[in-house]
Amino acid sequence: MTTRKLQPQTRFLQTSSRQSTMFYARSVVLYALLCICSTNYSKIKNASIPVRLFTEEELQRYDGSEDGQPIYMAIKGVVFDVTTGKEFYGKGAPYNALVGKDSTRAVAKMSLDPADLTHDTTGLTENQLQSLEQIFKGTYKAKYPIVGYTSRRVLNEDGSPNKDFKPEDQPNFNIKEEF
């Protein structure tokens, strides 16, 4: 039996191939760890933000009138923390009338009229509804954290659960994008 000596080029290729395989294996393991960590971080981060139902009275407490208190605003029954926009929504600010309540109609109509400071979308035009959707997604959902939902979305006037409530049937509401 004869033993053959490997040429220097062949040894280099074998070593290089082995190094490539090790590099690839390490990269895969690192990628897997990063995926696991980022998924767990996402779960932890989302778990630390409680989803809360707000009554109209509770929401009024977050109208920007008290220093140090967060400023909340609801659109389409979704409550946003708009505190970072204090210069727009804080006490004495131009859009302060919108906070501490569900201002869906006002946002749709781009109005600060007290009669429009409501959740009611009855009678809005198609253009106003489209505007509402653009502002809801492009401004509020993109900029401000969701801290809860108005109880009106899921409760009857007497506070009992609304068994007929179907989010998918609500005007301008898409459950898949919010939960």
Rank of each mutant, 00 (worst) to 15 (best):
P114H: 06
T10S: 02
T139C: 02
T21D: 10
V82L: 06
N156W: 00
K143T: 14
Y72W: 13
H119L: 01
T39Q: 09
G138Y: 03
D169V: 00
E126K: 08
M110K: 14
N40K: 07
L33H: 02
T39M: 08
V154W: 14
A142R: 05
H119W: 03
T15I: 09
K163Q: 07
L132K: 07
R153P: 02
D158L: 06
M22Y: 11
M110N: 10
P167E: 14
S20P: 00
Y41C: 03
D169Y: 01
V51M: 09
T125K: 07
V78I: 14
R4W: 03
G90Q: 04
T10H: 03
Q69E: 15
I175W: 12
N46A: 12
S42E: 13
D102R: 04
K137W: 10
N96S: 13
D158E: 04
K43P: 00
K5R: 08
L59Y: 12
N174T: 14
P114M: 06
D169W: 01
S48D: 15
G77K: 04
P167M: 02
K5L: 02
P145E: 04
A108V: 10
V78S: 10
Q128H: 11
N172K: 08
I175H: 11
V154K: 05
T2K: 05
E157F: 05
K91D: 13
S38F: 07
Y95D: 03
Y24C: 02
S65L: 02
R105G: 00
P50Y: 09
Q134G: 11
V107I: 15
T125Q: 06
F165L: 03
L13M: 06
T10D: 12
P161S: 00
F88G: 06
T104I: 03
P161G: 00
A25K: 07
G92R: 01
K143W: 09
K76W: 00
N172S: 12
F12N: 01
Q130E: 15
S17V: 03
S17F: 03
K86Y: 04
K163C: 04
K101P: 11
D102Y: 08
S27A: 15
C35I: 10
K166D: 15
N46Q: 08
D113Y: 03
Q130M: 08
G64W: 12
V29C: 02
K176G: 06
E133F: 11
V154R: 02
T2F: 05
K91A: 14
E58N: 01
Q69S: 14
Q14M: 03
I71Q: 05
F23M: 09
K137M: 07
Y144R: 04
F80G: 08
K143V: 02
K45R: 14
S103D: 10
L6C: 01
E56M: 05
A115L: 08
K109F: 11
Y72G: 11
A97M: 13
K86I: 15
E57R: 09
A47V: 11
K141E: 06
S151G: 14
L112I: 09
Q69V: 15
M73K: 05
Y89L: 02
G85H: 01
I75H: 09
R18Q: 12
Y41I: 15
P171M: 01
S17R: 00
F165H: 04
T118D: 04
R4P: 00
A108M: 06
E56R: 10
M22A: 12
R26P: 00
L13R: 01
S17L: 08
N162G: 05
Y41A: 08
D116P: 06
S151T: 07
D158W: 05
